[in-house]
Design a binder for these strands. Structure first.
Ligand SMILES: [Mn+2]
Ligand SMILES: [Mn+2]
Ligand SMILES: [Zn+2]
Ligand SMILES: [Zn+2]
Lengths: 139, 139
DNA sequence: CAATAGTTTAGAATGATTATAAACTAATAA
DNA sequence: TTATTAGTTTATAATCATTCTAAACTATTG
């Protein structure tokens, strides 16, 4: 298990103990090369499917927030009844499929750079995010 | 009360009965020329301040959603534990002051038109919104 | 192994929002 | 006007995502 030792290192290097719960969540989140967008509910479902053992919901929340704090996950701004996270922590924009409730990454080249011409005294720009909502073609 | 009859008409024309609760909320939301961004909590607070009589929280929710359905209010996409509404129902972008938890409109001329070069088969773009998060200058 | 700090967990608590159902009221017809 | 109806308000309960709590468990270190 080459990957597993990678995750152990990743966690240790972040000051997080490599527990089996965290390693399992790492495998789900970071084992593939694709960006993964998810809610805690999504993640819990995947865990209970791919896993013999259960991980407590509190632990899933703890882990996701720990990973977010360490910069391995990013929270995404969409209006929903639940919070979404993103394994792509770079600054990027999204489609949001309102029917499927799924986020889709937009690549940098898919959107021209956003230039904000207004400034607010005493404030600086922290992030610029474009959210493109999608509906079915016929609607 | 010229305004009040205006609101009565507005409500009647929308098929909503002009109750005193709705008229009061109209005054708070639509009486000024400025865009008003608010959460239900904000609105409730203003109501209890500016008003002798109380309006039930359920009614505030009902009214806000009724107005939204009629196109007098728009829900705004930000990651927060509460939903925000906007009296500016046109398509426009926002600053979000993360410290004050306040939304600020960006005018059309403040942001160059956003051009999305990617398409998703079977889906069409419903809206494009930019959210610019602000932090204090020193941070 | 022993001591410690960090982690997991079930379950309780919180807080925004929605649902319920009874009381109330505006609109309409008689 | 009055009666009828449909729409509205309201207190309260229910829901649901998320956070808190405190006790049990475990990785780390000496
Ligand atoms: Mn978070
Ligand atoms: Mn709504
Ligand atoms: Zn993404
Ligand atoms: Zn606005």
């Amino acid at each position: 298990m080459n990957l597993n030792t990678d995750f152990v290192d990743k966690l240790r290097n972040s000051g997080l103990r490599p527990t089996k719960q965290r390693l399992k969540i790492c495998e789900i989140l970071f084992d593939n090369d694709k960006t993964f967008h998810f809610s805690v509910k999504d993640l819990s479902k995947i865990i209970s499917q791919k896993l013999g053992e259960k991980i407590s919901l509190a632990t899933v929340y703890n882990t996701v927030h720990a990973f977010e704090k360490k910069g391995y996950l990013k929270e995404i701004s969409i209006n929903s009844n639940q919070t979404y996270f993103d394994t792509n922590t770079s600054s990027h924009h999204h489609f949001f499929d309102e029917k499927e409730k799924k986020l889709i990454d937009l690549k940098n080249e898919d959107v021209d750079p956003i230039n904000i011409k207004k400034t607010i005294p005493g404030k600086k720009i922290k992030s610029i995010e474009v959210l493109v909502k999608l509906d079915p073609d016929n609607y």
